[in-house]
């Protein structure tokens, strides 16, 4: 058999193949958002847990959202955009206003919502509350350590968290 010259493979269609794959991945790509609001649920209820301590009414900021997404804060109508300000005022009251919280450690925010309240309304309110806590913590961190909260060491962060604990209570609507 005569030895033939090795032929070179034509690479001209390589681009076409690559394009085909490219278009496939372009179409299937969903830049999935992997962001979210983190929350730790309270542990399951057991029988031998002592009844919760009685909290003075003035130490609770009561937020109620009805099934039509209308909100009442301490029995006053409120909008989502006001929540942050009200929460900050409530948490940092430190006994100035006798009707508001005694100190940040005692301040509890309670959210009550109906079964038909929309998820986005709840997320919005919740987001604003976290924003309020974050702002207060940042302010405190700057004042005490001269750095924003997320630049602090773990111990310093803990100190800030102890000074302004996040206490958000949710009541479960009945079925």
């Amino acid at each position: 058999m005569a030895k033939r010259e090795l032929q070179e493979i034509n690479a001209g269609s390589m681009a076409d193949i690559a394009f085909l794959l490219l278009i496939f991945f372009l179409v299937t790509t969903t830049m999935e958002s992997n962001y979210g609001i983190r929350r730790k649920l309270p542990p399951p209820e057991t029988k031998d847990v002592p009844p919760p301590p009685v909290i003075k009414k003035k130490n609770v900021l009561e937020i109620v959202i009805n099934n039509q997404d209308k909100m009442l804060i301490e029995e006053e109508p409120a909008e989502v955009k006001d929540v942050k300000e009200i929460a900050i005022k409530f948490i940092t009251n430190n006994g100035k206003d006798p009707e508001s919280s005694d100190n940040p450690q005692k301040a509890v925010i309670s959210i009550k919502h109906g079964r038909e309240t929309s998820y986005k309304e709840y997320i919005s309110v919740y987001n604003e509350l976290i924003a309020a806590y974050n702002e207060i913590r940042n302010r405190y961190a700057r004042q005490k350590f001269g750095k924003p909260f997320d630049k602090l060491t773990e111990e310093e962060q803990k100190a800030v968290k102890d000074a302004y604990p996040q206490k958000i209570a949710e009541s479960t609507p009945k079925r």
């Binding site: 958002s33 929350r39 309270p42």
Partner: peptide, 10 residues
């Protein structure tokens, strides 16, 4: 007892 929850949001 799966207490860590993430409310996925944009």
């Amino acid at each position: 007892n799966a207490l860590k929850v993430n409310y996925s949001s944009k």
